[in-house]
Amino acid sequence: MERQKKRMPVLLGALKSLLMAPGLLYIILCAAMLIAIMIGQSFGYFQITGDSGFTLQYWQSFFDRQFIDSLIYSLKTGILSSVLALCICYPLAVMISKSRMQKTLLALMKIPMFIPALVASFLLLNLVDYNGFINFILTGLGIVKEPLRMRNDKYAIGVICIQIWKNVPTQLIIMYSAVLSIRKDITDAAHNLGCRGLSYFIEIMLPMTISSALVAILLVFIGVFGDFAISSTAGPVYPNTLSSLLQMKVNLFYDWGQASCIGVVMVAVAIMVICLYTYLSRLLMRANG
């Protein structure tokens, strides 16, 4: 009887593991295993064409100017899009949280989420194109003599604009919940002690929502960093995003080895960003309790 009692938790544990098996298998097969294959390919293993075997040739010829430019470009668009979108989301989340039409405004703000990236890109091109709406207004008002080049420009202004438009809803949902989670009595206490406006934002709101802001930045950064669709339509001819470069390596040059190297770098950057996020969150958690 006693032995049977001891066995019960073990059996339950085994049952729980069994229930988790479909999810775990999916992750192992579709993520861990595929990443392992990709790493292997970058070192000459699992070749789709030709002989397989260990080699460093893909990595040796990998760090050229084109790759460095693409990496910088992807990082730049990722950082700028996620940070600028957050700058829009913070005040927007505060305004919506105070509005009487919260539900309607939130529903309207979510619209870009349901539009595919490629469609969004083409829609937004109407705004940022050489003959687009923004240039029409700017030239019409006499602010600029010649239309600005915001599409396919080397500074990726068009891409960043579209990325912000596309990603603001994702960040808004996170930041709106974060702003709402600040207890009313804490806000009242701050106001009562003379804290208003910008000092309220710096002293109370920012420290209490910073972990959500980090999540919002992380989610958007990862998406933009690995973007292909928007950069292909609105991005410059050179440099490309890492995804575009990867696509070129495979489709134009059939160079699976170097494509794998790009994949490894992209995964490594994503892991580094997640590690940074985890480290910062731990720091914040310790600071905020």
Binding site: D185, D188, A189, A190, M208, N288, G289
Partner: peptide
């Protein structure tokens, strides 16, 4: 004001 829930700033 002294609040029911103390309303201390957690950070």
């Amino acid at each position: 004001m002294v609040f029911q829930s103390y309303a201390l700033f957690p950070h």
